[in-house]
Design a binder for these strands. Structure first.
Length: 570
RNA sequence: GGCGCGGUAGCUCAGUUGGUUAGAGCGAUCGACUCAUAAUCGAUAGGUCGGGAGUUCAAGUCUCCCCCACGCCA
């Protein structure tokens, strides 16, 4: 069996993520991780919180907490919600961990030694009242061109004219409102990505099997304008990884930290160290160092399209530039955006459903199924309450849930709560096995290829085969003239339940577990062979009729939720 | 303004390297069944594949122009 390293883009720390964020990386990554584990592969699935940068500092200030405390609290919140959605991370780390601090500084040292770090002195806007340098997005003023009052430091959103912060009339800090701004000289480190352009280009060009979305974004950044630009990797902030060259101080860089986009991807590696230090694993290097056993690892990253440039270029530049045998990503699966009811999900405006709210109103499996079966793979996708209600009711309650219900209840009323004896298989059963085998092969093919929507459609078709079979052989009719034959039919149908549970677990793990429990099957292997899987339950095996596995979403609930989540989050 | 992803049945989407009557699910209509969460199963209807021009024996599928929507950027 193969070894798979899987990472999901790490969510930013400042608040709870919405469903669009969830389906953009963590959820499909979890689907893949669960599937590969079920198929017997060795999997290391990592995620973490991305904690550094100005937004975290501001959010902490707004919450009235020291930033370290705020981040620790929010990490705990996000970890709990991730658990609520059954995201099966082997470790959920933090980019602020000591391991990441050390490793980030280590990479900076290696890049410097390779001649890929350049020290640049530049002028930036400094806010005396805030006591800090201000990124362009935190400076506003009146546009000298059109008079728009909320023009940002880098451009006017009204007339689109490109601006310099010094051009603005009445320029002020959006943090404090202070107009006491001045230009100050400051020194920063730049990663000379341009020197790695050819190497990165050749590498990206060799990835012909990557999603178009991934490679097209990468190539745009490589070739647009003057090509790949050198990138500042330090900031004048307090909260972050202190700038060091390995373990040594970096003269002239005192009091500065690495830019969040430099240290965040390195957390993928540091997270594996955290995983070991937490006592969950024994050797992280065999996942990350190709000279120490990671050469047979297949590394897959999941992310939304906004993260693609950093994962196709910036982070690979860090890895390649270090000239050390770190594991490079083998496959990048990227996703478009999920829209909410005709518009965008909006964290700032509280528009749409957020992860904590979703779990308050429905079990995780409902969301997992709908989001995955509508994953925005080829283009942006649309969430509406109408489709959510009809799809979930139809797929989960009517097709799968009701199948389990009709089979177990029929058996209980005509036979008992034990797998009945008697009868033999004939043509309909052979046909069912053939059909299931065909679809199982297709399902596995789509899952292997990370074709999420197609996988969901195939799984649903497998569920439907059970209903088709029952409708065809009609055990309720057979029973009147040939109870033994009806027993054979319902025995087969009962066996379909654990079979479905095994195949469905990557999508709907809780429901799958409930079905196995009801059927009194302690554990189930992936059904490589359909025929043997459908004879797994021994005659006389006791089971119980499960509770309603999926209740339906009512019209009242749908309209209530549509109203509740349309506006502002309180 | 530049760039990017799209524009396929009422809705959500599939459509490999151009090749027979363009597919699926939902919804709709009709029928079957009655074991089941008023569930299920079957059948039928529904599309000038955004518009136009071109290449070709043949284009949803390639080329050019235009329109629309969304996103990114300067």
């Amino acid at each position: 069996m193969a070894r798979h390293l899987i990472t999901s883009a790490i969510p930013y720390i400042n608040g709870i993520k919405h469903l669009g964020n969830l389906i953009g990386s963590q959820l499909p990554a979890d689907l893949y991780a669960r599937y590969l584990r079920a198929r017997g592969n060795e999997v290391l699935f990592l995620c973490a919180t991305d904690e550094h940068g100005t937004p975290a500092e501001l959010a902490a200030a707004k919450a009235g907490k020291p930033v370290a405390e705020y981040c620790a609290d929010m990490w705990a919140v996000q970890a709990e919600i991730a658990q609520g959605f059954r995201l099966s991370f082997d470790h959920f780390g933090r980019s602020s961990s000591p391991q990441n601090h050390k490793l980030t500084q280590y990479f900076a040292g290696a890049l410097a030694a390779a001649g890929l770090i350049q020290e640049v002195t530049e002028n930036q806007v400094y806010s005396v009242a805030d006591g800090r340098f201000l990124p362009d997005r935190y400076i506003e003023g009146t546009c000298p061109n059109c008079g728009f009052e909320s023009a940002r430091g880098d451009q006017c959103d009204n007339c689109t004219k490109q601006l310099d912060p010094v051009d603005l009339i009445n320029a002020h800090s959006t943090i404090s409102g202070s107009t006491e701004l001045e230009m100050r000289e400051t020194k920063h480190l730049y990663l000379r990505q341009s020197k790695l352009k050819d190497d990165l280009n050749a590498w990206i060009s060799s990835k012909t099997d990557w999603p178009l979305l991934t490679t097209s974004i990468a190539k745009k950044w490589l070739h647009d304008g003057d090509g790949l630009q050198d990138r500042g990797i330090t900031r004048d902030l307090d909260w972050g990884v202190p700038v060091k060259r390995g373990t040594e101080d970096w003269p002239g860089m005192e009091g500065k930290v690495f830019y969040v986009w430099f240290d965040a991807p390195i957390e993928y590696i540091a997270c594996a160290q955290e995983w070991v230090d937490a006592g969950k694993g024994t050797d992280w290097e065999r996942w990350w160092r190709t000279d120490k056993g990671a050469d047979d690892v297949r590394y897959t990253q999941f992310m939304g399209k906004d993260n693609v440039p950093f994962h196709t270029l910036s982070f690979p530049a860090t890895i390649k530039g270090s000239a050390e045998p770190w594991k490079l990503v083998d496959y990048i699966k990227s996703f478009n955006y999920l829209n909410y009811d005709g518009g965008q999900f909006s964290t700032s405006r509280g528009r749409g459903v957020f992860m904590d709210q979703a779990l308050e109103i429905l079990p995780a499996d409902y969301w997992r199924w709908w989001l995955l079966s509508h994953a925005p793979e080829s283009s942006d996708a649309e969430f509406t309450w109408e489709t959510f209600q009809t799809d979930v009711n139809k797929d989960l309650a009517d097709v799968l849930g009701n199948f389990v219900s009709r089979v177990t209840k029929f058996c209980r009323s005509k036979f008992s709560e034990n797998v009945p004896v008697g009868g033999t298989w004939g043509a309909p059963e052979e046909q069912l096995i053939a059909d299931l085998s065909t679809r199982l092969t297709a399902y596995q093919g789509h899952m292997d290829a990370m074709e999420v929507r197609k996988s969901a459609a195939e799984l649903r078709a497998i569920w439907t085969l059970g209903n088709e079979y029952l409708q065809g052989v009609a055990p309720w009719t057979t029973f009147k003239t040939d109870p033994d034959q009806a027993a054979a039919q319902i025995r087969l149908a009962l066996n379909l339940i654990p079979f479905y549970a095994a195949l469905s677990a990557p999508f709907i793990p809780d429901a799958a577990a409930e079905l196995l429990e009801a059927m009194r099957v302690p554990d189930t292997a992936w059904p490589d062979d359909v025929r043997s899987a459908l004879t797994a339950l021994p005659v006389g095996h006791a089971f119980s009729v499960p509770e309603v596995t999926f209740r339906k979403i009512t019209d009242d609930e749908r309209s209530d939720w549509a109203e509740r989540f349309a506006g502002t989050r309180d």
